[in-house]
């Protein structure tokens, strides 16, 4: 069993609780030991970096320094935490003066960041360390016939830390096929949902979501899967708003890819947080639950 330091991210305690619960459950079933980083703080986040990049890097660095002590790779299921932590790491690697400043700040609480910890996305660790073949070998309920739109979103692949193709990623397709379901062609797979901008620029973001839902529906998807907390929340919680603005009747459950894997592994519903989903996935998943 391979061990990792686990960084759940703030959304794991609120809007993305389903991602956290299902990540922990499938990791256990697939032989990954996730040890939660003790007393982790916010990853630094995109808004923090926009207001004050250096401060955001220092906030991220507390997590990196704590994680470094464990000697294990730092794994997060959240696309956004992955980008922010990776960005802090690369800034400190490329700019020794910046790293020195951050280390002076960390020294105030007896911490030091050396630069040895690896930051990884849970999905990448699943693909690289566990492999799709192993997932397939552990499937108890093949999701035969289920048509799934694989929606990667932008954060996971686009910044230079991504492990998959930045505009035509295939990891999610591979996972969907590995659990026996059909990945439908989904040209919008790496388009942006608007992220947290939905709060301040709702009109624009609802339009982006409409395009994503429309593309999934037109390609015959019965549900959408994504690894990203923001993509999931937007497409799930705002789907009714899209319907009323565009006079559509989308009823597409939006699952975390970890939830989809969990269903195929035969894990119980409450271990996957499926009741947290707003567009009810039970009808689509009835055959497999």
């Amino acid at each position: 069993m391979k061990s990792y330091t686990y960084f759940p991210g703030c959304s794991s305690e609120a809007t993305a609780v389903g991602l956290d619960v299902s990540s922990r459950s499938i990791a256990e079933a697939l032989g990954m030991e996730l040890k939660e980083l003790e007393d982790w703080n916010c990853c630094g986040s995109t808004p923090y970096g926009s207001l004050d990049e250096l401060e955001a890097i220092a906030v991220a660095a507390r997590n990196l320094a704590l994680a470094e002590k464990t000697g294990l790779d730092l794994v997060t299921p959240c696309s956004s935490c992955f980008v922010t932590l990776s960005k802090a790491r690369v800034h400190m690697m490329e700019k020794p003066q910046l790293k020195a400043k951050v280390n002076q700040a960390l020294a105030a609480v007896g911490l030091e960041y050396k630069g040895t910890v690896k930051v990884r996305l849970l999905i990448e660790a699943l693909m690289s360390d566990i492999t799709a073949e192993t997932i397939t070998s552990k499937v108890k309920k093949p999701l035969k016939g289920l048509k799934v739109a694989p929606y990667t979103g932008c954060q996971e692949v686009r910044p230079r830390f991504g492990f998959d193709h930045p505009e035509n990623p295939i990891a999610l397709d591979t996972i969907v096929e590995a659990v026996g379901a059909d990945a439908v062609p989904y040209p919008s797979k790496s388009k942006c949902c608007g992220g947290s901008a939905v709060i301040a620029e709702e009109g624009l973001c609802i339009e982006l979501m409409y395009k994503l839902l429309d593309d999934a529906a037109k390609n015959g998807a019965e549900c959408i899967v994504t690894p990203c907390p923001l993509c999931q929340m937007n497409l799930d919680a705002y789907q009714a708003k899209v319907n009323s603005k565009y006079n559509t009747n989308f009823n597409l459950p939006v699952l975390f890819v970890t939830q989809l894997i969990g269903v195929a592994l035969g894990l119980k519903q409450d271990k996957l947080g499926l009741k947290k989903n707003i567009v009810n996935p039970n009808k689509v998943l009835a055959k497999y639950l």
């Binding site: 995109t46 932008c154 954060q155 686009r158 942006c192 608007g194 992220g195």
Partner: peptide, 8 residues
């Protein structure tokens, strides 16, 4: 929106 399309 920090989607990084331009960056890529």
């Amino acid at each position: 929106l920090s989607c990084y399309s331009c960056t890529v």
